[in-house]
């Protein structure tokens, strides 16, 4: 009997993922209504539960993909993977008001540039303070503070060591996680309640997973606007990291 159940969970993983996420959403909704009296959005709670499960899954399996590394839950990897994520993000654009998007065009583009430079400088500075003072390590860790994709892409291009790569990726993942969790709480403080500020938010934060999850938990209507700018962020980061930013760091450190 158990073997039959195991076989079904393995071969029909996507359906199992629908059930798992459905249960998480149901629990989150109940927690939101009872424990927080609706003050914390159910999506935010669901995302935190997801992250906790990712931690438990990562500890149990020793893998890098959280819950998805446990074979019974591998369908979660498909449901939350890049393909369906991008598919659903694009779908949210159906309700985009192009006049709103156009109004934030220039400041949106500016926010991407500032949003890449600021975390890079901070990340590289912290790396220096912790003794990673060579240009390659500083650039790689700084790039990780941009996103967890820019970090390894930059590190691979520059030939960084594997422990520096791990630190770089970890910094990017922590950034994504913090953005996911903190956005709903900080949204009122930073004026994140309209399409224009959502586009700036997407450009400055850049981490697509953090931005879209954070906005989903704040106000789902803002998701497409944030996604519109954040989709260019990682590309800009990968472009600047191993080239202009590395040369700048090398010029400053002298080696």
């Amino acid at each position: 009997m158990i073997e039959t159940l195991e076989k079904i969970l393995l071969s029909q993983g996507l359906l199992a993922a629908f059930v798992i996420v459905g249960v998480i959403m149901l629990v989150s909704d109940a927690v939101s209504r009872t424990l927080t009296r609706g003050r914390i959005h159910p999506s935010a709670i669901a995302i935190v539960i997801g992250l906790c499960l990712a931690y438990l899954g990562g500890r149990a399996s020793g893998g890098e993909k959280g819950l998805a590394d446990i074979s019974y839950f591998s369908g979660v990897g498909l449901l939350g993977g890049a393909m369906l994520r991008d598919f659903a993000i694009v779908a949210t654009a159906f309700e985009v008001d192009i006049r709103e998007a156009g109004r934030a065009g220039l400041v949106g583009a500016a926010s991407i540039l500032i949003g890449v430079l600021a975390p890079f400088v901070l990340g590289a500075g912290v790396a220096h303070a912790f003794g990673y003072s060579d240009a390659v390590s500083m650039t790689t860790i700084g790039a990780g503070a941009v996103t967890y994709i820019v970090g390894p892409v930059t590190g691979a291009a520059l030939g960084a060591s594997s422990d520096v790569m791990a630190l770089s990726i970890a910094t990017g993942v922590l950034k994504a996680v913090l953005v996911m969790v903190a956005t709903p709480a900080l949204a009122p403080l930073i004026g994140l309640d309209n399409p224009r500020s959502a586009m700036i938010f997407g450009g400055v934060m850049g981490t697509t997973s953090g931005v879209t999850a954070g906005l989903a938990a704040t106000d789902p209507k803002l998701v497409p606007y944030g996604a519109l700018t954040s989709t260019f962020y990682t590309g800009v980061g990968c472009l600047l990291g191993p080239s202009a930013l590395f040369l700048a760091v090398r010029a400053v450190t002298g080696g």
Partner: peptide, 27 residues
């Protein structure tokens, strides 16, 4: 577009949270 939030939850469940926690004080 309405499946977006559940997909984000599934995405959160497969982040490398262990690595982020293990990265230590610098991270």
């Amino acid at each position: 577009s309405m499946m977006y939030i559940p997909i984000v939850v599934a995405m959160a469940a497969q982040q490398n949270v262990v690595a982020a926690v293990r990265g230590g004080p610098m991270v």
